[in-house]
């Protein structure tokens, strides 16, 4: 256990070092969220949507975290493959799952920073009023949200390790999740047939809960029910990702898809 924690820690630190030196990463945690926040702020301004700051900051923040965690974590596997280090980290005595977890954790920390940057940008650039009705609840939900995101990211990372084709997937997983989980507009405006997909995406519930804790919780029972769904889905994700990593260990060696042949 102590050993695993150490591995997670060093992978996390290494990941942060590697990522930070990548200009593209700086783009995705700084420039992209700011411009995105600018666009959404401009669109929401002068409209009838009440407490739109919650939509703008939360929505763009959650989108950037999603992009940073999922996109980067998936991309990292691809970079390891291209750099020839994927083979190395899969075949060390340390469990690959743990190494990946550390990497995702690193990206998560950066992703949270980008939420902070978005918040500061809106605050400083537009001097927009912002208030959180339930700060403590907000923080708790936020942490659960991150845990849930990490689970999703590790599933994605597993898929990319398994198949080179999944790299194509990585490039267009961003918007669908942002749209379907209702990060910037309620998913209720989408056609009804998309509902089931929204419901099995944990960000959908995370965003609902976060928005509630910003605006104020009227119906505690409904809040707890939604929280239960979020926790349940996150649990399922972890089980799924665990299964994937067990498959990975065998499958990649049979298929020979680790290297860049």
């Amino acid at each position: 256990m102590k050993n695993s924690l150490r591995t997670i820690w060093i992978s996390c630190i290494l990941q942060m070092k590697l990522s930070f030196m990548r200009p593209m990463f700086q783009y995705s945690i700084i420039i992209d969220p700011i411009v995105f926040a600018l666009i959404t702020y401009m669109m929401f301004k002068d409209t009838s949507v009440s407490n739109f700051i919650a939509y703008v900051v939360l929505g763009t923040g959650m989108s950037s975290i999603w992009n940073s965690i999922c996109f980067s974590s998936a991309g990292d596997i691809d970079r390891e493959r291209a750099g020839g280090t994927l083979e190395l980290i899969v075949s060390v005595p340390t469990n690959f799952k743990i190494i990946v977890f550390g990497k995702i954790l690193g990206n998560t920390i950066f992703g949270s920073i980008s939420l902070l940057i978005t918040f500061l940008f809106i605050k400083l650039a537009f001097n927009a009023p912002m208030s959180i009705a339930e700060p403590v609840v907000f923080v708790i939900i936020f942490i659960i949200t991150l845990i849930s995101y990490i689970a999703l990211a590790s599933i994605l990372a597993a898929l990319i390790t398994l198949s080179r084709n999944a790299v194509a997937l990585k490039n267009c997983i961003g918007y669908p999740v942002i749209i379907l989980s209702g990060m910037l507009f309620p998913m209720e405006i989408l056609p009804i047939w998309t509902r089931p997909v929204s419901f099995i995406l944990s960000p959908t519930w995370a965003v609902k809960l976060l928005r509630l804790s910003v605006n104020g919780i009227d119906d505690v029972n409904s809040f707890i029910f939604q929280l239960a769904i979020l926790v349940f889905l996150t649990g399922i994700y972890y089980l799924l990702s665990n299964t994937f990593y067990t498959i990975i260990d065998k499958s990649i060696r049979i298929k020979g898809s680790l290297g860049r042949m």
């Binding site: 918007y175 910037l184 507009f185 309620p186």
Partner: peptide
Amino acid sequence: FFCLLAKYV
């Protein structure tokens, strides 16, 4: 995404 956002906003 942006069309939906516009539609909502």
